[in-house]
Write a protein that binds this DNA or RNA. Structure first.
Length: 218
DNA sequence: GCCCAGGGGGCTC
DNA sequence: GAGCCCCATGGG
Protein backbone atom coordinates (compact mmCIF):
# COMPACT_ATOMS: atom_id res chain seq x y z
CA UNK A 1 0.00 0.00 0.00
CA UNK A 2 1.13 3.54 -0.79
CA UNK A 3 0.00 4.71 2.64
CA UNK A 4 2.26 2.19 4.38
CA UNK A 5 5.20 3.19 2.20
CA UNK A 6 4.73 6.87 2.92
CA UNK A 7 4.55 6.21 6.66
CA UNK A 8 7.58 3.93 6.45
CA UNK A 9 9.58 6.69 4.75
CA UNK A 10 8.45 9.17 7.39
CA UNK A 11 9.41 6.87 10.25
CA UNK A 12 12.84 6.23 8.75
CA UNK A 13 13.53 9.94 8.28
CA UNK A 14 12.23 10.80 11.74
CA UNK A 15 14.22 8.00 13.34
CA UNK A 16 17.39 9.05 11.55
CA UNK A 17 17.26 12.84 11.81
CA UNK A 18 14.86 13.40 14.72
CA UNK A 19 12.07 15.98 14.84
CA UNK A 20 12.87 19.21 13.00
CA UNK A 21 10.40 21.52 14.78
CA UNK A 22 9.83 23.73 11.74
CA UNK A 23 9.42 26.56 10.82
CA UNK A 24 12.50 28.33 12.23
CA UNK A 25 10.75 31.61 13.07
CA UNK A 26 9.76 33.39 16.27
CA UNK A 27 6.45 34.78 14.99
CA UNK A 28 3.93 33.97 12.24
CA UNK A 29 4.87 37.19 10.46
CA UNK A 30 8.54 36.28 10.50
CA UNK A 31 7.53 32.92 9.07
CA UNK A 32 5.66 34.56 6.19
CA UNK A 33 8.52 36.90 5.34
CA UNK A 34 10.89 33.94 5.45
CA UNK A 35 8.63 31.97 3.12
CA UNK A 36 8.82 34.72 0.51
CA UNK A 37 12.55 35.26 0.96
CA UNK A 38 13.43 31.59 0.60
CA UNK A 39 11.86 31.31 -2.85
CA UNK A 40 14.47 29.70 -5.10
CA UNK A 41 17.17 30.26 -2.51
CA UNK A 42 18.77 28.16 0.18
CA UNK A 43 17.84 29.01 3.73
CA UNK A 44 21.37 30.19 4.49
CA UNK A 45 20.84 33.20 2.20
CA UNK A 46 17.66 34.07 4.06
CA UNK A 47 19.03 34.08 7.61
CA UNK A 48 21.11 37.22 7.00
CA UNK A 49 18.14 39.06 5.57
CA UNK A 50 15.95 38.07 8.52
CA UNK A 51 18.69 39.15 10.92
CA UNK A 52 18.91 42.54 9.17
CA UNK A 53 15.17 43.06 9.52
CA UNK A 54 15.28 42.11 13.19
CA UNK A 55 18.22 44.43 13.81
CA UNK A 56 16.11 47.43 12.81
CA UNK A 57 12.97 46.06 14.51
CA UNK A 58 11.21 45.80 11.16
CA UNK A 59 9.84 42.28 11.48
CA UNK A 60 6.42 43.63 12.33
CA UNK A 61 3.71 44.26 9.71
CA UNK A 62 2.97 47.90 10.53
CA UNK A 63 6.66 48.81 10.81
CA UNK A 64 7.52 47.15 7.52
CA UNK A 65 4.54 48.73 5.81
CA UNK A 66 5.84 52.18 6.73
CA UNK A 67 9.30 51.47 5.30
CA UNK A 68 10.25 52.70 1.81
CA UNK A 69 10.45 49.71 -0.53
CA UNK A 70 14.00 50.62 -1.55
CA UNK A 71 15.16 50.44 2.04
CA UNK A 72 13.43 47.09 2.50
CA UNK A 73 15.11 45.80 -0.66
CA UNK A 74 18.56 46.70 0.67
CA UNK A 75 17.91 44.96 3.99
CA UNK A 76 16.98 41.71 2.24
CA UNK A 77 19.74 41.94 -0.35
CA UNK A 78 21.34 38.66 0.67
CA UNK A 79 18.22 36.70 -0.22
CA UNK A 80 18.72 37.27 -3.98
CA UNK A 81 16.09 38.71 -6.32
CA UNK A 82 15.70 41.32 -3.61
CA UNK A 83 13.82 43.93 -5.62
CA UNK A 84 11.25 41.36 -6.66
CA UNK A 85 10.96 40.01 -3.13
CA UNK A 86 10.61 43.46 -1.59
CA UNK A 87 7.69 44.01 -3.95
CA UNK A 88 6.19 40.67 -2.92
CA UNK A 89 6.41 41.55 0.76
CA UNK A 90 4.77 44.89 0.06
CA UNK A 91 1.99 43.14 -1.87
CA UNK A 92 1.40 40.86 1.10
CA UNK A 93 1.33 43.79 3.51
CA UNK A 94 -1.15 45.63 1.29
CA UNK A 95 -3.40 42.61 1.50
CA UNK A 96 -3.07 42.54 5.29
CA UNK A 97 -4.39 46.10 5.56
CA UNK A 98 -7.89 44.64 5.16
CA UNK A 99 -7.27 42.80 8.45
CA UNK A 100 -5.61 45.71 10.28
CA UNK A 101 -2.39 43.69 10.10
CA UNK A 102 -3.96 41.08 12.38
CA UNK A 103 -2.63 37.71 11.27
CA UNK A 104 -4.96 35.77 13.55
CA UNK A 105 -7.89 37.36 11.77
CA UNK A 106 -6.31 36.64 8.39
CA UNK A 107 -5.74 33.00 9.30
CA UNK A 108 -9.16 32.44 10.83
CA UNK A 109 -10.83 30.89 7.83
CA UNK A 110 -10.89 27.43 6.35
CA UNK A 111 -7.95 26.10 4.38
CA UNK A 112 -9.60 26.38 0.96
CA UNK A 113 -10.58 30.02 1.47
CA UNK A 114 -7.21 30.92 2.97
CA UNK A 115 -5.35 29.25 0.13
CA UNK A 116 -7.41 31.02 -2.49
CA UNK A 117 -6.75 34.34 -0.84
CA UNK A 118 -3.02 33.71 -0.52
CA UNK A 119 -2.78 32.70 -4.17
CA UNK A 120 -4.48 35.93 -5.18
CA UNK A 121 -1.53 37.89 -3.76
CA UNK A 122 1.11 38.66 -6.36
CA UNK A 123 4.30 36.81 -5.52
CA UNK A 124 2.62 34.01 -3.60
CA UNK A 125 2.47 30.78 -5.56
CA UNK A 126 1.36 27.35 -4.44
CA UNK A 127 4.45 26.34 -2.50
CA UNK A 128 4.64 29.65 -0.64
CA UNK A 129 0.91 29.64 0.07
CA UNK A 130 0.97 26.10 1.40
CA UNK A 131 4.03 26.77 3.55
CA UNK A 132 2.24 29.74 5.11
CA UNK A 133 -0.88 27.65 5.73
CA UNK A 134 1.06 24.77 7.29
CA UNK A 135 3.67 26.61 9.34
CA UNK A 136 2.05 30.03 9.82
CA UNK A 137 -1.66 29.30 10.16
CA UNK A 138 -1.03 25.81 11.55
CA UNK A 139 -3.55 24.07 9.33
CA UNK A 140 -2.81 20.69 7.71
CA UNK A 141 -1.86 20.94 4.04
CA UNK A 142 1.02 19.06 2.42
CA UNK A 143 3.75 21.34 1.08
CA UNK A 144 5.40 20.27 -2.17
CA UNK A 145 8.77 21.51 -3.34
CA UNK A 146 11.55 20.50 -5.69
CA UNK A 147 13.02 18.20 -3.04
CA UNK A 148 9.72 16.42 -2.46
CA UNK A 149 9.30 15.75 -6.16
CA UNK A 150 12.92 14.66 -6.51
CA UNK A 151 12.76 12.29 -3.55
CA UNK A 152 9.44 10.68 -4.43
CA UNK A 153 10.64 10.16 -8.00
CA UNK A 154 13.90 8.62 -6.78
CA UNK A 155 11.90 6.22 -4.65
CA UNK A 156 9.90 5.28 -7.73
CA UNK A 157 6.57 6.34 -6.23
CA UNK A 158 5.66 9.04 -8.77
CA UNK A 159 6.86 10.20 -12.19
CA UNK A 160 9.49 12.93 -11.96
CA UNK A 161 7.38 15.40 -13.97
CA UNK A 162 4.36 15.07 -11.68
CA UNK A 163 2.53 18.37 -11.18
CA UNK A 164 2.29 20.26 -7.90
CA UNK A 165 -1.38 19.56 -7.21
CA UNK A 166 -1.09 15.93 -8.26
CA UNK A 167 1.76 15.32 -5.85
CA UNK A 168 -0.01 17.19 -3.04
CA UNK A 169 -3.08 14.97 -3.56
CA UNK A 170 -0.84 11.91 -3.54
CA UNK A 171 0.27 12.71 0.00
CA UNK A 172 -3.04 14.02 1.28
CA UNK A 173 -5.04 11.04 0.02
CA UNK A 174 -2.62 8.54 1.47
CA UNK A 175 -1.83 10.11 4.82
CA UNK A 176 -4.02 11.07 7.77
CA UNK A 177 -4.65 14.83 7.74
CA UNK A 178 -2.49 15.56 10.75
CA UNK A 179 -0.84 18.92 11.35
CA UNK A 180 2.33 17.79 13.07
CA UNK A 181 2.76 14.86 10.66
CA UNK A 182 2.60 17.21 7.67
CA UNK A 183 4.87 19.74 9.33
CA UNK A 184 7.52 17.19 10.23
CA UNK A 185 7.28 15.25 6.98
CA UNK A 186 8.02 18.23 4.76
CA UNK A 187 10.77 19.47 7.08
CA UNK A 188 12.40 16.04 7.13
CA UNK A 189 12.32 15.77 3.33
CA UNK A 190 14.06 19.12 2.97
CA UNK A 191 16.57 18.30 5.69
CA UNK A 192 17.26 14.90 4.16
CA UNK A 193 17.71 16.22 0.63
CA UNK A 194 19.99 19.01 1.82
CA UNK A 195 22.20 16.56 3.63
CA UNK A 196 22.15 13.12 2.13
CA UNK A 197 20.96 13.38 -1.44
CA UNK A 198 22.89 16.47 -2.48
CA UNK A 199 25.86 17.03 -0.24
CA UNK A 200 27.30 13.57 0.12
CA UNK A 201 29.38 11.89 -2.54
CA UNK A 202 27.68 8.54 -1.92
CA UNK A 203 24.53 7.14 -0.36
CA UNK A 204 26.32 5.67 2.65
CA UNK A 205 24.26 6.10 5.78
CA UNK A 206 21.11 7.15 3.95
CA UNK A 207 18.04 5.99 5.91
CA UNK A 208 16.18 5.37 2.65
CA UNK A 209 18.92 3.45 0.85
CA UNK A 210 17.02 0.17 0.75
CA UNK A 211 14.04 1.90 -0.88
CA UNK A 212 15.90 3.99 -3.44
CA UNK A 213 16.20 3.12 -7.13
CA UNK A 214 19.28 5.25 -7.55
CA UNK A 215 21.19 4.25 -4.45
CA UNK A 216 24.90 4.43 -5.15
CA UNK A 217 24.41 6.00 -8.56
CA UNK A 218 25.44 9.51 -7.58
C1' DG B 1 35.98 32.18 -11.97
C1' DC B 2 32.12 28.99 -12.29
C1' DC B 3 28.13 26.76 -10.81
C1' DC B 4 23.68 26.65 -8.94
C1' DA B 5 20.20 26.99 -5.13
C1' DG B 6 13.54 24.98 -1.14
C1' DG B 7 9.85 30.03 -6.76
C1' DG B 8 6.88 32.93 -9.18
C1' DG B 9 5.31 35.93 -12.91
C1' DG B 10 5.01 37.11 -17.60
C1' DC B 11 5.34 36.13 -22.18
C1' DT B 12 5.01 33.16 -26.39
C1' DC B 13 3.10 29.74 -29.27
C1' DG C 1 -0.65 24.51 -20.85
C1' DA C 2 4.14 23.60 -21.70
C1' DG C 3 8.37 25.98 -22.42
C1' DC C 4 11.14 29.58 -21.92
C1' DC C 5 13.33 33.96 -19.66
C1' DC C 6 13.79 37.21 -15.94
C1' DC C 7 15.05 38.33 -11.25
C1' DA C 8 20.59 39.08 -9.69
C1' DT C 9 23.46 36.89 -3.91
C1' DG C 10 26.61 33.96 -1.85
C1' DG C 11 28.76 29.59 -0.70
C1' DG C 12 31.23 25.58 -2.35
Amino acid sequence: MIADKLLDIFERLLGHYGPQHWWPAETPFEMIVGAILTQSVSWANVTKAIANLKRVDALEPAVLAAMPVGELAQLIRSSRFYNMKAGKIVAFLEHLIDYDYDLDAFFSKDVVALRGELLSIKGVGMETADSIILYGAHKPIFVIDAYTRQLMARLGLVPSQIGYEQLRSFFEINLPSDLSLFQEYHALIVHHCNRTCQKRPSCMGCPLISLCQFAGAN
